[in-house]
């Protein structure tokens, strides 16, 4: 489990669309927003960075999202796992990246 704090920059007149989009993802919580200036801070709970990247892609594909940037990450539990098992946490190998991998 990692936790990210990220910032969404959006077109002000699409606030309701953004809320609809966020509500489709249970692992995203809104913590602060500035509706008038199109800024919102969200936290994301994810199994790994891959999950976060997938979300990023979804958000980037929306025309009303101007930017989706990450500011902070907590990975304490992952460090503990790596230290106790000697394995660097990976994502589900059955769902590999397809975006850039060619084979």
């Amino acid at each position: 489990m990692i936790i990210a704090a990220s910032i969404l920059y959006f077109q002000e007149d699409h606030y309701d669309d953004l809320i609809k989009l966020i509500n489709q993802h249970k692992n995203i919580e809104i913590t602060n927003e500035d509706k008038e200036n199109g800024k919102m801070v969200v936290t994301i709970e994810a199994e790994n960075n891959k999950d976060i990247e997938d979300l990023e892609e979804i958000f980037h594909n929306c025309d009303f999202i101007i930017d989706f940037t990450h500011h902070a990450f907590y990975f304490g539990d992952e460090v503990e796992k790596a230290e106790t098992t000697g394995i660097i946490p990976d994502f589900d190998i059955k769902k590999p990246f397809t975006k850039k991998k060619i084979l």
């Binding site: 919580e29 913590t31 500011h71």
Partner: peptide, 12 residues
């Protein structure tokens, strides 16, 4: 989450 979000809010 609160800690990280506070920092992100300051950044934004």
């Amino acid at each position: 989450k609160s800690t990280l979000a506070a920092s992100a809010a300051a950044a934004a």
